[in-house]
Computed example of a mutant assay.
Amino acid sequence: MPSMRIFVATVYGGALDVAELSQPLCEQAGFQVNILEEPELEDLVNAPPDIALFCISTTGSGDFPGNFMRFADNMANQLPDLSHQRYGLIAMGDSSYDTFCGAGRKLDNVLQQCGAQRIGERLEIDASRTPMADDEALPWIESWLPIARESLQ
């Protein structure tokens, strides 16, 4: 059974809600899923999952939430070889700010600098249009999962 780790960057729990509601869908698609609320870079680099899914909120001026700062800083500083890694990314933000989905966009950029291969398009959820992020995230997950499975072939 292929493995999936869901890496969560959250301030008020919205990204964690998305991760927890996505987990059963991912398991039904045949993945063994672990949610990481306090991720470390080693969770991605040492014994990497077959697929990584990032649920990332933006805080401040396009910043990563506190629980994700060490992960993001270590990745940006070390730029590990992630050419073997496939991933999906759900970015959450508020378009009334200039830094809309800034953390998710930054992470996507660094992952690609490290050679990781994004599966499908990055989902950007706008809190000013979609107060309940899962309303947008779950349909995206359902359409993303077949592509994720296919990428493992």
Rank of each mutant, 00 (worst) to 15 (best):
residue 40 E to V: 14
residue 44 L to G: 00
residue 144 W to P: 06
residue 98 D to H: 05
residue 114 C to D: 06
residue 138 L to A: 08
residue 33 V to S: 07
residue 105 R to K: 15
residue 30 G to D: 12
residue 116 A to T: 08
residue 62 G to E: 05
residue 8 V to W: 00
residue 21 L to N: 08
residue 133 A to E: 02
residue 38 E to N: 14
residue 74 N to L: 11
residue 81 D to Q: 15
residue 84 H to I: 07
residue 7 F to K: 01
residue 134 D to Y: 08
residue 97 Y to M: 04
residue 111 L to T: 04
residue 1 M to R: 13
residue 4 M to Y: 05
residue 34 N to H: 10
residue 128 S to N: 13
residue 26 C to H: 01
residue 110 V to R: 06
residue 88 G to N: 08
residue 14 G to V: 06
residue 40 E to F: 12
residue 139 P to Y: 09
residue 42 E to N: 14
residue 2 P to K: 12
residue 111 L to S: 03
residue 58 T to R: 02
residue 153 Q to E: 14
residue 140 W to V: 09
residue 94 D to N: 13
residue 141 I to D: 00
residue 28 Q to C: 03
residue 85 Q to H: 10
residue 67 N to L: 11
residue 65 P to D: 13
residue 153 Q to Y: 07
residue 83 S to R: 14
residue 71 F to A: 04
residue 51 I to C: 04
residue 55 C to Q: 01
residue 152 L to F: 07
residue 59 T to M: 06
residue 129 R to C: 09
residue 17 D to S: 08
residue 103 A to Q: 02
residue 117 Q to H: 12
residue 46 N to D: 09
residue 107 L to F: 02
residue 62 G to C: 06
residue 21 L to Y: 03
residue 54 F to N: 00
residue 46 N to C: 04
residue 38 E to L: 15
residue 132 M to F: 05
residue 129 R to I: 09
residue 53 L to D: 01
residue 132 M to K: 09
residue 135 D to P: 00
residue 80 P to A: 15
residue 18 V to A: 12
residue 11 V to W: 03
residue 42 E to S: 15
residue 123 L to C: 07
residue 106 K to Q: 15
residue 54 F to A: 00
residue 13 G to P: 06
residue 53 L to R: 01
residue 25 L to D: 09
residue 8 V to Y: 00
residue 118 R to Y: 02
residue 59 T to R: 01
residue 91 A to H: 00
residue 141 I to K: 02
residue 124 E to S: 10
residue 146 P to R: 02
residue 60 G to F: 05
residue 38 E to C: 11
residue 71 F to I: 07
residue 129 R to S: 12
residue 137 A to P: 04
residue 102 G to A: 09
residue 17 D to H: 06
residue 135 D to K: 07
residue 39 P to N: 10
residue 78 Q to H: 11
residue 111 L to N: 04
residue 146 P to I: 04
residue 30 G to F: 11
residue 59 T to F: 00
residue 70 R to D: 09
residue 153 Q to W: 08
residue 15 A to Q: 02
residue 93 G to F: 00
residue 98 D to I: 03
residue 27 E to K: 11
residue 114 C to R: 07
residue 68 F to L: 12
residue 130 T to K: 04
residue 131 P to Y: 01
residue 137 A to N: 08
residue 77 N to S: 13
residue 85 Q to E: 10
residue 134 D to Q: 11
residue 34 N to L: 11
residue 5 R to I: 06
residue 87 Y to T: 05
residue 55 C to W: 01
residue 68 F to V: 07
residue 76 A to N: 08
residue 107 L to A: 02
residue 147 I to L: 15
residue 37 E to S: 10
residue 23 Q to L: 09
residue 137 A to K: 05
residue 119 I to V: 15
residue 131 P to V: 04
residue 106 K to A: 13
residue 15 A to G: 12
residue 77 N to D: 13
residue 112 Q to V: 06
residue 102 G to S: 09
residue 9 A to L: 04
residue 8 V to L: 03
residue 71 F to E: 03
residue 45 V to Y: 06
residue 77 N to C: 08
residue 7 F to P: 00
residue 32 Q to H: 13
residue 126 D to Y: 05
residue 117 Q to T: 10
residue 11 V to L: 09
residue 114 C to T: 08
residue 75 M to G: 03
residue 78 Q to S: 14
residue 104 G to K: 01
residue 4 M to T: 03
residue 29 A to N: 06
residue 92 M to R: 07
residue 75 M to N: 03
residue 81 D to C: 12
residue 70 R to W: 08
residue 94 D to Y: 01
residue 77 N to I: 05
residue 148 A to S: 07
residue 35 I to K: 02
residue 34 N to I: 09
residue 56 I to W: 00
residue 19 A to G: 07
residue 104 G to N: 04
residue 130 T to M: 05
residue 17 D to L: 04
